[in-house]
């Protein structure tokens, strides 16, 4: 059954500018979904409607039976966690531990539970060595992991990551991949906005493509990355290996290196 549903949800700013236009999406528990599209396509506005930061100007957003109109973001934060694009907007404590601890404590969890959540989140995000450090002394990419940990610690059923891959290096990408998989296996729904198509190929099955304030495709990654019409409308490119397969005219569903090698082996 769908856990989080957007029905014909639109969002218009007070000045009348419509940032999202009649979007329909639904997510099951334990799903992991990537949202892709250029900036300005409406991705961030859409996910901000999922945790009540923005209330739809038309249509409905329902989470686990709650219509976001009837609840404040603070209340919804039990169910939907959201990691901001820029970690500096989010961090407000002098040490990493307090930062991570803030959310679960605010939810009123018992002391031991808070502690357990913090340690688990810190471990997943790889920030355990920095728990006593001031977050502002950490490099940007590590600050991002601090904010990810502080949302994981709230143990919400849905976690939204807004461009977690921006400016991350190889080890960080691996840590992100691992974190998404672990949370997924625990039954959490992970919704990730990203510009990195390789990251999508490696870590997600379902992909939602947004362009011009609307959803233009919502399908399995293989179908999406070989739908050149959709990609063109969204001004996106195929992942590198798919592009290579396409240029070579072989295998119309290749996404990753082993698949391409398999396909070539057949041609030999």
């Amino acid at each position: 059954m769908s856990f989080l549903t957007l029905t014909n949800a639109s969002f218009a700013y007070p000045n009348g500018y419509k940032a999202v236009d009649r979007v329909n999406m639904s997510f099951n528990k334990g799903e992991s979904v990537a949202i892709v599209g250029q900036n300005g396509a409406g991705k961030t506005t859409t996910v901000k409607m999922m945790n009540g930061l923005l209330k739809p100007s038309e249509g409905d957003v329902v989470i686990d039976g709650w219509n976001t109109r009837d609840y404040t973001t603070a209340q919804i934060s039990r169910k939907v966690g959201y990691v901001f694009q820029n970690p500096d907007d989010q961090i407000f404590h002098n040490d990493v531990y307090s930062e991570i601890e803030f959310g679960p404590r605010k939810l009123g969890l018992p002391e031991e539970q808070v502690k357990a959540n913090v340690m688990k989140a810190a471990e997943l995000a790889g920030v355990v060595p920095f728990l006593k450090d001031n977050p502002y002394n950490l490099p940007y990419s590590m600050r991002k992991f601090v904010t990810i940990a502080s949302v994981i610690a709230m143990d919400s059923s849905v976690i939204i990551l807004d461009e977690p891959t921006a400016g991350q290096d190889l080890p960080a990408m691996e840590r992100l991949a691992n974190l998404i998989e672990t949370l997924n296996q625990e039954g959490k729904t992970i919704i990730t906005i990203t510009h990195d198509m390789e990251f999508v190929v490696n870590n997600f099955h379902r992909v939602i493509v947004m362009a011009n304030r609307q959803v233009i495709a919502d399908d399995d990654k293989r179908a999406i990355f070989w739908n050149l019409d959709v990609l063109e409308r969204a001004m996106l490119k195929q992942p590198h290996i798919s592009r290579l397969g396409y240029s070579l005219g072989i295998g119309h569903n290749i996404l990753a290196i082993p698949e391409l090698a398999d396909e070539l082996a057949k041609h030999k």
Binding site: L170, P239, H240, L244, I257
Partner: peptide
């Protein structure tokens, strides 16, 4: 800790 291009990785796999 450096990444390699998909194309190099593909060549290595081959």
């Amino acid at each position: 800790g450096a990444a390699l291009p998909q194309y190099s990785l593909f060549g290595m796999e081959m």
